Each structure stands twice: as C-alpha cells, then as structure tokens.
Simulated scan of single mutants.
Amino acid sequence: MFQNGDYVVYGCKGIHKIIDTTTLNMDGVSKNKEYYVMQPYDKPTGSVYAPVDAAKINMRKIMSRAEADAFIKTVPGISILDIKNNKQREDAYKECIRSCDPDELMRVIKTLYVRKEERISQGKKLTLTDTHYMQQAEGILYDELALVLDMPKDDVPDYISGIVHKSVV
C-alpha cells in the first residue's frame, strides 16, 4: 500500500501523487472499497481515484535517484521492438506503456526513434499513431526522471544521452 505523499507511476496515465485514501459515496460503488485520491503530476488541480486493492491496475512507486541513474546506464542494452505489422506494433506499444516499466517505456521510445529515422530517410514523417505513442512513453518516463533527478523535463533526453555516451566511451 502506498502512503500519502508518495509519487507513483499510474499505468498509462503517468505520474501521480498520493494525496489520501477514501471511500466513494456513489451509486453502484461498494462503500467498503478504498480508493487512492491522486493528483496528476502534470495537472496539479485535478484528482484521480484508483482502487487500493485493484490487481489489474499497474501502479508502482517512482524510482529513487540511484535507481534512475542505474536505469539510465542500462539504456544501451534495451532492445527495440522488431515488429513489421502496424497493428501488432501498436498493440506492443500499448502493452509496453500499460506496464509502467521503465525498460518497456524506453523500448517504445528507442523503437520509435529508429522508426522515425527510417521514415525520414525515405522522405516520410512519423505517423500520427507513432507520434502519439512516442509522446505518451516519453511523457511518462521523462516526467518520472525529471522529478527524481530534479531537472526540467526538456533536459532529460540530453541527460540520458550524456550518461549513455560516457558509459560507452
């Protein structure tokens, strides 16, 4: 169980801060079921409710700084998705993003960077679907890393590149 004040990655919804736990007073909802009251990291005026005991919801505590630094060093070893069929590739993106797993989010990002370069070399742009999943994966992972590394989100890609480059050299 998470504590008030904890930051979590909440499925494909991104970073949230646990504000409280409560029960909901709504028709059709059990009065005994507890819910986390969460504040979206990118929308501090909003509230999201998630069942405390839901096994199907992927939610995890955000990385520590040490875990983030260790994760970044593993980025070169994270493989890309090698799926040629558009529908299967989209399903794989969805599954990776829903997992909340930093490795899977980075797998989507790396795959789409490679795909973007391939399309540019063919005189094409990244498709809207690919752009959507790129933004979603980057949004979740880069928000988390920006928070734990205490830096602006826009600086995260360069920070990752710098660490990866140092570890390769």
Rank of each mutant, 00 (worst) to 15 (best):
N86S: 14
I97V: 15
P102A: 11
G77R: 12
A54L: 09
M38I: 02
A92C: 08
S99G: 05
Y41D: 10
I57Q: 03
R89V: 01
A54R: 13
S47G: 00
A66D: 15
D69W: 04
R65A: 06
D91W: 00
C96H: 12
I80M: 10
I72S: 09
I72M: 08
R89I: 03
P44F: 04
E104N: 13
I78P: 11
Y49C: 08
R65K: 15
E95I: 03
A92G: 02
K73Q: 14
P76M: 09
M63N: 07
P51N: 04
A70G: 02
A70S: 13
R65N: 13
S99V: 06
G77S: 14
A66T: 11
D53S: 09
A66V: 13
E90C: 06
K56H: 08
I83F: 06
D103Y: 10
S79M: 15
M63T: 10
F71Q: 07
M63A: 04
V75L: 13
V75M: 10
P44K: 11
E67S: 08
D82S: 12
R98T: 00
P102K: 07
K84P: 01
P51Q: 09
S47I: 12
Y36D: 00
R98P: 02
R89L: 15
F71K: 09
E95M: 04
C96E: 11
R60Q: 12
K61M: 01
R65Q: 14
M59F: 06
A55K: 15
K87N: 10
D91M: 06
M63W: 00
G77I: 00
I97N: 08
I78F: 10
R65H: 12
V75F: 13
